[in-house]
């Protein structure tokens, strides 16, 4: 059951991160393609967005490994 719990935790977290990152990246590419002079500001916003989105799947990976290993 531990392996199943770990798989569900990592899978759902990766799904959420994938959707979130996809939204962020697509909007950033649109913005940079439209106004390349705003690249630095858009990159900064993208960086903070990706950071916020990816905190959760990393916690999920850690918890999944603890569930499997402990």
């Amino acid at each position: 059951m531990g392996a199943l719990a770990a798989a569900i935790a990592v899978g759902l977290a990766a799904l959420g991160a994938g959707i979130g990152n996809g939204l962020i990246v697509s909007r950033t590419v649109e913005g940079i393609a439209r106004q390349p002079e705003l690249r630095s500001a858009l990159q900064t916003t993208m960086f903070i967005g990706v950071g916020l989105v990816e905190a959760m799947p990393i916690i999920a990976v850690v918890i999944a490994l603890i569930v499997m290993g402990g």
């Binding site: 990246v25 950033t28 590419v29 940079i32 393609a33 390349p36 690249r39 630095s40 858009l42 990159q43 993208m46 960086f47 990706v50 950071g51 990816e54």
Partner: peptide, 16 residues
């Protein structure tokens, strides 16, 4: 890694 990858990403998006 995130800083480096996002910088590369921005460069790639700006230069098509």
């Amino acid at each position: 890694l995130m800083q480096r990858k996002i910088k590369q990403f921005g460069q790639a998006a700006a230069t098509n």
